[in-house]
Design a protein around this nucleic acid. Structure first.
Lengths: 274, 274
DNA sequence: TCGGTCCTGGAACGAATATTCCATTTTCGG
DNA sequence: CCGAAAATGGAATATTCGTTCCAGGACCGA
């Protein structure tokens, strides 16, 4: 009954085996698998009783599940997750607390706030990213003869960094800055793609260019913040990112991570197609 | 012996009480306190036996420490840290694993990589930030009649965002871009401050401006990557940040968090001095 | 040096937890 | 519909872990 294979040595291996066997599992065992897949982080700090209750099964069923996964029991499985967690969380939490504790508005405390905000934003991105939209955006951008990029105010660093990456990857890209108040809209041609980046309060210039591109027959990819962004109505694909704010300010951690990944993905996609 | 006060309700309260009593503790108990202060994150996943062994004391000593902290015992203390951890780590880890598992080079997997890198960079920043240097940088910048900001290539988004923040906070700041290949160096006056941002490979233009400013009697604050950065030799204060790379690319999560905090701190410092 | 107080170490106890076992139920092929 | 094999639930057991207790030792003031 219990396969005598060696237990997974890493969380990644664990995930693989889970995906592999979860189709062949009886009902209760399947419940365990589903719950574990969804809350694997809880394993490190929960007891079998808690886990099985949360999954809606008996502790004994959960034990059988552990053995199906190749472990001798729950304890061995738990050890894997505890080690994993300890590895990725050195003394960071402690240090942050100290920085924050050092005083409400010392610079170090402020950095701690922004670190926390950035971290939270990254976590949000992980849970809320629309993988299909992203894939569509990459496909569209990979086909574009020329990529137009526009972002003003807070979105400007993102636009600038994207163009920098595009340039590094030999992708033809044009940054629509507003230097000299010169408008570059007439460079947009049918078949080109506009990557428009804007957050509330949305700058009219960016919206205007998005609308113009649409009329001109150039698809629009938007990186924006909320579901009610005006960019959504005039873009083929919308990627949304929300940043946690510190007072009136925000970092760009999540937005830049998404943008960088997008740029690199487009670069590799192009390379693959020759 | 054991004070009958209520136990700390949050990790912050815990830290406070720890700092408060740790001077009055006997030797073994002090060892516990030191070890806990340094590895508070381990409490959630370790047993008393493990913790006490790591601290170099007997389990019973560790128990007494828990009671000094106001808890009934180790279990109650552990519960606090487990709740804290569950709170700040919803299903983020799971989601990330799924994204990464979905394939080596799908866009979503790439985003997961950059999220991890960003997170790691932020954690590095938390543990390696030089609070004194930061404080000095803020003080210097707060006194400057005019702040010059320069960063090219990968550092350009950081420079741009800093100037954006300075502008929002009514701080006179000038971005030394290279539009039209026009050099703004002659705007630098004695008493001004240059905020120079550069990472390997360091762009000569930024280094040049840093040297020039020094000669001109304007102090230089550097944001750079390593300890052997050429900026270090010509700057009054150096803030170092290291970003984890994904292949040949990096995000700017940590750098931007630091820069944003720096900008906001300077703004509030100025406001306080009128 | 002596007496008292506080601290320390280790063993012993009790509670909680993981794990196994088996009777009962369900499933599925014939 | 029947019988075998698999799955399930719940109780019983074994193990680990938290907690307490007490004897011995260190420290301190007199």
């Amino acid at each position: 009954m219990v396969s005598t294979t060696t237990p997974p040595a890493t969380v990644a291996e664990f995930q693989d085996r889970l995906a592999e066997i979860s189709d062949t599992l009886p009902r209760r065992l399947r419940q365990c698998a589903d719950h574990v897949a969804r809350h694997s982080d809880r394993i490190a700090i929960s007891t079998v009783a808690e886990m099985s209750a949360a999954a809606g099964v008996q502790p004994s069923a959960f034990m059988r599940f552990c053995q199906f996964m190749g472990f001798s029991g729950y304890s061995q499985m738990q050890r894997l997750f505890r080690e994993e967690q300890a590895r990725r969380w050195p003394d960071y939490a402690t240090r942050l607390e100290n920085m924050r504790k050092s005083g409400g508005d010392t610079p170090a405390a402020l950095v701690a706030e922004f670190i926390e905000a950035g971290r939270g934003s990254l976590e949000n991105l992980a849970t809320s990213l629309d993988a299909d939209a992203l894939k569509a955006a990459v496909a569209t951008l990979a086909r574009a003869p020329l990529v137009h990029v526009m972002g003003l105010s807070r979105a400007f660093p993102v636009a600038a960094y994207l163009v920098y990456i595009f340039e590094k990857m030999d992708i033809p890209a044009l940054l629509h800055d507003r230097v000299g108040n010169i408008d570059h809209r007439h460079t947009v041609r049918r078949g080109d793609v506009l990557l428009a980046i804007s957050f509330a309060p949305y700058s009219p210039e960016t919206l205007e260019l998005a609308n113009y591109s649409n009329e001109r027959g150039a698809q629009v990819i938007a990186i924006t913040d909320a579901l009610n962004s005006p960019l959504r109505s005039c873009s083929a694909v919308t990627l949304s990112v929300s940043e946690i704010d510190v007072g009136a300010f925000r970092t760009l951690s999540a937005t830049l991570s998404l943008a960088t990944a997008l740029g690199v993905a487009v670069g590799t996609a192009r390379r693959n197609r020759g």
